[in-house]
Design a binder for these strands. Sequence first.
DNA 1: CATCAAAAACTCC
DNA 2: GGAGTTTTTGATG
Length: 179
Amino acid sequence: MKNQFFRLTIATPDGRFVARYSAKGLAELDFPNSEALVAPKRSEGGAAERASPRAAEANGIPAKIRAWHRATESALKNILAGTEPRNFPPLDPSGTVFQQAVWREMRKIPFGRTKSYGEVAQAIDRPKAVRAVGGACGANPIPILVPCHRVLAAHGKIGGFGGGLGWKRKLLTREGVIL
DNA sequence: CATCAAAAACTCC
DNA sequence: GGAGTTTTTGATG
């Protein structure tokens, strides 16, 4: 795929996240530390890495993307602060049909609530695919905004988390979830 | 390109 | 603790 992704960063009290945008919306979000990349000097709100050949659009970032990024930043910071975000950017994660179904289902989990892998599996009409649901969660390219951290194992166990279990615990605690 | 085998953020007995 | 299910991914022919 000839991704002409736009990569921007979001500075939070928990580190700097990296967001990538496709032409349709937010495609990926990475935790801090997951990738060591050099700070682009002094750009604060974010910097485009792959600007188009022509600097037709200001700073190489279309207004559309900047608007999405603003929503992403706001939503992310809200969740990190333990408050419910109001507006989301459009999401465009790439994955198999099954994975998209799982992610879509996860997005329906209300703020501060949790579901088990089994419940998600039932919701997408594959009650026995609980193991596969776990796999789809791990493949989620947009953590936090797609609340994979709100999915726990059965019997209140925490399960796992791609970006490190520490994150999962912290996020749940801030949302007021009691394990 | 078609098939096989192994692994995974699970669940239930 | 062990077996059962489903999907994804990488190796094999």
